[in-house]
Design a protein around this nucleic acid. Structure first.
Length: 362
RNA sequence: UGGGGCGUCGCCAAGUGGUAAGGCAGCGGGUUUUGAUCCCGCCAUUCGGAGGUUCGAAUCCUUCCGCCCCAG
């Protein structure tokens, strides 16, 4: 009887290439699937074509077929529209969390299943423990763990997902790629928004949203400068403020502390660790739990407020209406609305919620 | 035009005879599957202009220009 079929999401990078090879070693039937979910013709940053060629070369070398599919329409509707909507609301969205939930482990997962896949696999640095209820675990390379981005993936998808490189460190993966002489073995790690890639961010946003310049103020109301539109700034941000050398202030750089949408004012404070940049708690909503439900209505755990942040001890209290409040043991810097708070019990990712506000009321 | 003060990189600012600190901003790179943060590098042959003194001046002198303050 035939071995199970795994369809691997191939990005043309090192990680998914090695993931495919590992699955072959493990005796699976393997096929590749390349997604190009962004129409790049509209701008000058065109890397998808090159990535596709890389994926083809790798699949050729591994002797596996490569499917190609575009979910550009779905991406636009289910990820990018939300992305723009959040920016319009003065928040800072995290499109890649949604991309995983809606595209890679959503429509693409369904697509792979229709192609006959028993499993879907990706080159993420994370692990799934398959039991009655799947458990999502951190990748073993602490510098690359990507469970943060996967916390909202539905359990139904995780139940049929493999992360072949989740127990490896990046340097091991790259070494394997080198020893296998995969054509992409020294390809640089990709960054930037998934499927959209690296590009000047402000310029990119400005293509989709009108900028409304306004004043930059200190907490006491002094006008310190002008901003290019609130969407171009996020909490805790330093770059781009163009404030420097004031005789009435010290030498420390300035950081975004708050956005006043009503007045279209950006509020800034001086010093990386200014108290106004810290919060002891944060209101959350739109929870997603890997197990389908939270462990309890109130419990202690750790939380990451952004990718690659060290785990922060906290207590989460959930309300009946679906909202919640996370209380940090140590005040957290730049708690940013629109970003995700992702909860962990040691190595296990429990799920997460969206940060709703930066004020500490409640 | 009576008195006083000041003009050094986009901004703040050291330097007062020995051959231009530093910070902020900006730019470039690194880290990074969000946005940020963070790290590294670059950033005044020149000190408001013109003369002069001196081996040598941003630093002294003269003068011009421009600001500011107090008096009017």
């Amino acid at each position: 009887m035939a071995s199970p079929l795994v369809i691997v999401g191939m990005s043309g990078g090192v990680d998914s290439s090695v993931a495919a090879w590992l699955l072959l070693q493990q005796g699976y039937q393997v096929q590749g699937l390349f997604m190009s979910n962004w129409d790049e013709d509209e701008d000058g940053y065109c890397t998808a074509a090159a990535d596709y060629q890389d994926a083809r070369k790798v699949c050729g070398q591994l002797g596996i077929v490569l499917h190609q599919v575009s979910f550009a329409g779905e991406y636009r509707q289910r990820v990018f529209e939300y992305f723009l909507e959040e920016y319009r609301a003065g928040r800072t969205p995290n499109p890649d969390v949604l991309c995983n939930r809606e595209i890679k482990f959503g429509v693409c997962f369904d697509y792979a299943r229709r192609l006959g896949a028993d499993w879907i696999a990706t080159g993420h640095y994370a692990r799934v423990e398959h039991a009655a209820q799947p458990r999502l675990l951190k990748g073993l390379d602490p510098g690359k763990d990507q469970s943060y981005f996967l916390h909202a993936v539905p359990a139904t998808a995780l139940a049929r997902t493999l992360f072949p490189i989740g127990a490896l460190h990046k340097h091991q993966v790259r070494r394997m790629a080198m020893e296998l002489a995969l054509p992409v073995f020294e390809k640089k790690d990709s960054t930037g928004i998934c499927f959209i890639g690296e590009r000047p961010f402000a310029e990119f946003l400005a293509q989709y949203l009108p900028a409304q310049p306004g004043d930059i103020e200190s907490p006491d109301g002094r006008k310190l400068g002008r901003h290019a539109g609130l969407m171009h700034y996020t909490l805790g941000q330093r770059q781009g403020l163009r404030i420097g050398g004031r005789a009435d202030a010290g030498e420390a750089p300035w950081y975004v502390a708050d956005k006043d949408l009503a007045r279209n004012v950006l509020r800034v404070v001086q010093g990386h660790d200014h108290p106004a940049l810290f919060r002891r708690q944060a209101p959350l909503s739109q929870f997603a739990w890997i197990a389908g439900a939270p462990p309890a209505a109130s419990f202690r755990c750790t939380v990451k407020l952004r990718y690659r942040q060290a785990d922060q001890p906290c207590e989460l209290r959930l309300a009946a209406d679906g909202s919640g409040m996370v209380y940090f043991d140590a005040p957290q810097r730049a708690v940013t609305p629109g970003q995700y708070a992702v909860f962990y019990d040691r190595d296990q990712c429990l799920g997460g919620g969206v940060i709703e506000a930066s004020h500490s009321s409640g």
